[in-house]
Computed example of a mutant assay.
Amino acid sequence: MIKDNLREVEERIQSACERVERNRRDVTLIAVSKTKPISMIEEVMKEGIIDFGENKVQELNQKCEEIKTELNWHLIGHLQRNKVKYIIDKVSLIHSVDSLRLAIQIDEEAKKVNRIVPVLIEVNVAKEETKYGVAVEDTLSLIEEISKLNYIKIKGLMTIAPYVENPEENREHFRNLRKLSVDIKSKNIDNVDMDILSMGMTNDYQVAIEEGATMVRVGTGIFGEREYNKGE
């Protein structure tokens, strides 16, 4: 099942890239492996996937310990400040930085292990009250503050779009995140890149790619249905 699912996801990513004349190599597929057992992750690994997304710190840690192969682990869920220390030396990228207080905590813990941690700023583009993320209008000022920290590197932006039946309904949100990214890049802020746009999940990643996503987070589309879809 997983092999077939991955083939289908890959075909859809390729098709989306072709529609807007993008190179397939410019899009990273993150397999959202939260709640999934090691055996299923290993099946995905056999197909050449090395990027995996987790929502919870404890689960990410456990999987890091059990899987000896070097993988790129992405923390895509909300990160509490008191849990930063547990993943600071394990994650390849933190997608969910949405406050200066969290960024300062990451910076402090990263200093202890002498590591510059790459992060994305999570933006609540759709203005959903139930979602985390900084407001669009506050994103630039937050980035300017975080950029002053020594052990954090801002690599781009992330958003979790609303869950919708028709993916086209999220096109505007993806387009707005892309526009925000371009605007911020034009400011040429030290210690800030806008190379990554993490947007698009199982139900809308093709639209996200068409609007410029460089990372898509796909869980259900790879592993099958689960109880909830938040963050994937």
Rank of each mutant, 00 (worst) to 15 (best):
L120G: 05
N114F: 06
D138T: 07
A126I: 09
D107S: 02
A135D: 10
K131S: 03
E137W: 03
I116Y: 02
V134N: 12
I116E: 06
R115V: 05
I121F: 03
V134C: 06
E122C: 04
P118W: 03
G133D: 12
T139Y: 01
E109M: 08
I106A: 10
V119W: 06
K111W: 09
K127I: 04
E108W: 03
K112T: 04
A135Q: 14
E108Y: 10
V136K: 15
V134A: 08
T130H: 14
A110L: 08
N124A: 07
V136D: 06
V113R: 05
I121V: 13
T130N: 15
R115Q: 01
L120Y: 11
V125R: 13
N124Q: 03
V136Q: 14
V117D: 02
V123S: 11
V136F: 08
E128A: 06
Q105F: 01
K111H: 09
E129L: 14
A126C: 09
V119G: 03
E122A: 12
I104F: 00
K131I: 00
E109Q: 14
D138L: 02
V119I: 15
P118G: 10
A110E: 01
K112I: 02
L120W: 13
V134T: 12
E128I: 06
K131D: 00
I116F: 01
V113M: 04
E129H: 07
K112W: 00
E129Q: 13
L120A: 14
V123M: 03
I116H: 02
K127W: 00
G133M: 03
A135T: 09
G133H: 08
I121S: 10
E129N: 12
